[in-house]
C-alpha cells in the first residue's frame, strides 16, 4: 500500500514537471482572455476545434475565415450556407453537454442566456473552455468579434472586420437623415399577433444612428402591440423580417393588403422593406450590411417621392 502511494506521488511529480516544461515551451502561444461574463479563460494555444451555439457566433467564425475550425454549431445557425455541413447540436434551454463533448472541442462559445453553472462545470472538468459571447448592442458585437478573433488566433482578421463595420456605420452616420421620418419594425406578422422592436434592440440602435425615428421607441425590447397603434403612429417606412416560404402573398404584399392600413404613409407610398435573413436582428458582422440596406432603401424612396411632392 505504502509503495503504491509512493509510486503515485512520484508519478504525479513527474507529470507536473512535464506539464510545466511544456507550458514553458509554448508560452508565446498562450491565449488569455476575459469573456463577456467577466470570466478569465486561458488556453495553451489558439483553439483548433470550436463549437458555437448561437447563430451570431457561427457567422463571426466564418467571417474570420475560421469556418474549418468549427466542429459543431447550434441548431438554429443558418448563415452562411456552409454552416449546414457542420454537425448540429441542441442549444438554448436544451443544451446537451454529452452532444458537445462527443465533438471533442477545445472551446465552447455560448450566450449567457443558455448556460447553467452545472453545465459549465461539467464542460470545464472535461477540458473544454467555456467562453460567453453575448452582445446586447453594436459595441458588444465588436467585443464578440475581438474575443473570437483572439480565441482562434485571428486578431488581424477581427480588427479588419470591426474597422469595416465601423466604416460602414460611419458612412451612414455622416449623411444621417433629419429625424423627421419614422420607421416601424415588424418582427411578427399580423396573423400571429404583431410584435415590434422597441429601444435596446439592434433595430432601434441602427434606426437612431441613421436619423430615423423608431415608432415604438417608447417600448423596451421586443413587445406585442395593438394593430390600432401602428395606424395611429403612422410610420413613413415599414421593415418586416417575416420569412417567405414561397406560397401565398409575400410579406410585403400581405402588409399592403391589410384592411384599414391603406392610409398609413408607408403603405400608401409602398415603402416596405422585407429583410428576411436576420440582417438587423442578429449581433453579427452583417448588421452593417442590414443598416446599409435600410439606409439605401430610405434614400431611394425619398428620391422617388421628391418629384411628386
Amino acid at each position: 500500500m505504502k509503495k503504491l502511494k509512493k509510486t503515485g506521488a512520484l508519478l504525479i511529480a513527474a507529470l507536473m514537471l512535464l506539464a510545466l516544461s511544456s507550458c514553458g515551451k509554448g508560452a508565446d502561444t498562450t491565449v488569455t482572455l476575459t469573456d463577456m461574463m467577466g470570466h478569465e479563460v486561458t488556453l495553451d494555444k489558439p483553439a483548433e476545434r470550436i463549437v458555437a451555439l448561437s447563430a451570431a457566433d457561427c457567422e463571426i467564425v466564418y467571417a474570420l475565415g475560421a469556418g474549418d475550425l468549427l466542429v459543431g454549431r447550434g441548431e438554429w445557425c443558418d448563415y452562411p450556407a456552409e454552416v449546414f455541413d457542420v454537425p448540429s447540436v441542441e442549444s438554448g434551454g436544451n443544451t446537451n453537454v454529452e452532444q458537445i463533448l462527443l465533438l471533442k472541442p477545445d472551446v465552447l462559445v455560448m450566450s449567457s442566456m443558455a448556460q447553467t453553472e452545472e453545465q459549465v462545470k461539467q464542460l470545464e472538468d472535461a477540458g473544454v473552455a467555456v467562453v460567453v459571447s453575448d452582445a446586447k448592442d453594436i459595441a458588444g458585437v465588436y467585443t464578440s468579434i475581438e474575443l473570437l478573433g483572439k480565441l482562434l488566433g485571428k486578431d488581424a482578421e477581427a480588427a479588419k472586420i470591426i474597422s469595416d463595420m465601423k466604416e460602414g456605420f460611419a458612412g451612414i452616420e455622416a449623411n444621417k437623415l433629419d429625424g423627421t421620418k419614422s420607421v416601424y419594425f415588424e418582427v411578427s406578422p399580423l396573423e400571429w399577433g404583431l410584435w415590434t422592436a422597441g429601444k435596446n434592440t439592434f433595430m432601434d440602435e441602427i434606426a437612431t444612428m441613421m436619423g430615423l425615428e423608431n415608432c415604438f421607441g417608447d417600448l423596451d425590447g421586443w413587445a406585442e402591440i395593438s394593430e390600432e397603434q401602428v395606424l395611429a403612429r403612422n410610420p413613413d417606412y415599414i421593415v418586416t423580417i417575416t420569412m417567405y416560404f414561397g406560397e401565398g402573398p409575400t410579406p410585403v404584399e400581405e402588409i399592403l393588403s391589410r384592411p384599414g392600413w391603406e392610409n398609413v404613409t408607408a403603405v400608401r407610398n409602398q415603402a416596405i422593406l422585407n429583410l428576411q435573413n436576420n440582417e438587423l436582428s442578429r449581433p453579427a458582422p452583417r448588421l452593417a450590411d442590414g443598416a446599409k440596406m435600410l439606409y439605401d432603401f430610405v434614400i431611394e424612396n425619398a428620391q422617388a417621392l421628391t418629384p411628386a411632392a
Partner: peptide, 10 residues
C-alpha cells in the same frame, strides 16, 4: 380617416 380605418376594418 384614422378613426375610420381603426374602427371599421380592425
Amino acid at each position: 380617416s384614422l378613426a375610420r380605418s381603426v374602427v371599421v376594418p380592425i
